[in-house]
Structure formats: structure tokens, C-alpha cells
Design a protein around this nucleic acid. Structure first.
Lengths: 140, 140
DNA sequence: CTTGACCCCGTAGCCAACTCCGGGGTGACA
DNA sequence: TGTCACCCCGGAGTTGGCTACGGGGTCAAG
């Protein structure tokens, strides 16, 4: 059993099918996100069709902001058939992190947009609201 | 002239006064953000009082999201006494970058918040909306 | 005279997620 | 037989902004 199947792919074929990159796939394997596939006689990796599914899982999880470590956890959870609570906990942690980063960036954006609006863009640097804001203590 | 002044600081004093760190100051010097200060007879750096001002400039610019490279540009612009337009251009570029990152994070956040809300947190992983969303093609 | 805080230097390590390099084997096609 | 795309591997390099390390000098207090 487990004979090489017609539908198996090389790493390049997998990369194309999953919209990924050969080096990235090898990297994920080193990281433990992808199980080492069986090898053909020449040493080439031979991927079963569902390897593409796993790769796409990783890609989608990345678009939600999960780190590779977290994605590894998600994949384990899925395989272990464990409780949904663990998944939700991971999502919650990621959500909290996203909210924190959003708040930080939003604060930057608002402050900078305000300065940008107040800077005419004309005349010498001295007196420029942007430079002045950076230069001196804020007088609240 | 340029004799060591009473008000000069060692690097540690500067760090405390500017709310920074000794190692960070030396790093900024290597990066070219801070000019190499004159040295005392024992080789110690001796900073004039306005070094703290420059350090605080850097710190504030960081809170607006500028990179150290951009902060270096801002400092040069300030010293060169050049046109305000260059400053505004830097601010605009930073603003555009912040907006892009905000949009990206916001998209992640919304998608993840939606999944989180739809996941009961109870029961087995199979059927969990979060895992399912990652697992299969979106059906549009 | 010793302790401890401070200072000097160059270099290496850290984080994430790749990305590239060099050197070498494999396989389909002309 | 050549050539070209593909595959293998281990290891180093990239980005940004620090942070740590090791080994050594300096200085004021006690």
C-alpha cells in the first residue's frame, strides 16, 4: 500500500497549484508546518493532492494575521480533533493583538495626518509644523 | 574654543535625560542619526545639552511611525534649512504607508472578528467556522 | 586598596518569514 | 549528446531596531 499515485505532485507542481513557492514549501517543511512527504526513487518529494489543501490553509491563516507558530497550532488542533475552545482562544489572542496594533497605528495616523494638514508645504523648514512638533516639547 | 563645558553630559547622563538607553545612543551614532560627540581625555563621549533635544526628536518621530532612515532625512532637512516641501513629502509617504497597513490590519480584524463571533467555542473542531473558513475554498 | 558603577570597543545574536547561494543530480526533448 | 528546467541539500543572507557579550579602562566613595 501507499504506492506512488498518478495524482502525486512534485514540489514545483504543488507550488504552482497552491499559489506558493518551492522555497517556501521547503521552509514550511523545516518549520514543521508541512509533514515530510514520501520520496520518489530519485529523491524527489512526492506530494499527495491534499498537500495543496494544507498549503492553502496556511496561506489563508496568514491573511488573517496568524503567525506561522499559531498556524502550526491550528493545524495540530484540526488534526487532533480537539475542542473548538482551543481554536477560539487562538483567534481571540490574535484578535486582541490586531486590535492593539490597529490602535497604535491609528494613533500614529491621526497625529501625522493632523501635522500634514497643518503644514503648508511651502517656505523654509523652520516654522514647519511637522518639524516643530518633533523638535520641541508639546505644550499641552 | 570648544572647551569641555560644565553642562556636558556623559552618555549615561544623556540617556537618563532623554529617556533613552546607552546602547541605543551608541547605535544611533553608528547609524549616523547622532553626530559623533567630542571626547574627554579618557575617551568618554561628552554630549552638549542639545544632544538630548536631538534624541527626543528621534523618539517622537518614531511614535509617528517614521523609520530611522526617514528620521535621518528629517534631521538632515532640518539642518540643511531646506524647503518645507521635502518634509511634507516624507510625511505624506509615511501617511500613505500607515493607511495601507491600517487597511490591511482592519481587513484582517474584521474577517477574524466575524469568524470569532460565529464560533461557539464549544464542541469538536470539525464544524468550527474558523477552521472551516481556513480549510476550504470560499464559495462565492 | 577595593568595590561598584560607569565608560570604551567590535562583534554577534535576536525576531519572522522567507530568500538566495553554491554545488550537484535528474529527466524530457531535439 | 546537449541543453534546459527541474529537483536535492545545508547554510548564509535579508530587513529593522535594537540588545547582549566579552574583555578591558576609569573614577569616586569608603
Amino acid at each position: 500500500m501507499n504506492a506512488p499515485s498518478e495524482s502525486d505532485m512534485t514540489i514545483g507542481q504543488l507550488a504552482r497549484r497552491a499559489g506558493s513557492d518551492v522555497e517556501t514549501i521547503r521552509y514550511y517543511e523545516r518549520r514543521g508546518l508541512l509533514p515530510p512527504p514520501p520520496r520518489a526513487g530519485n529523491g524527489y518529494r512526492r506530494y499527495p493532492p491534499d498537500a495543496a489543501r494544507r498549503l492553502r490553509f496556511i496561506r489563508r491563516a496568514k491573511t488573517l494575521g496568524f503567525t506561522l507558530a499559531e498556524i502550526g497550532e491550528l493545524l495540530s488542533l484540526r488534526e487532533a480533533g480537539s475542542n473548538r475552545a482551543a481554536v477560539k482562544q487562538l483567534a481571540r489572542a490574535r484578535l486582541a493583538d490586531l486590535d492593539a496594533r490597529l490602535a497604535d497605528l491609528q494613533r500614529m495616523r491621526d497625529a501625522l495626518a493632523d501635522l500634514d494638514q497643518r503644514c503648508s508645504g511651502q517656505g523654509p523648514v523652520s516654522g514647519c509644523p511637522i518639524i516643530e512638533a518633533l523638535d520641541q516639547e508639546k505644550t499641552p
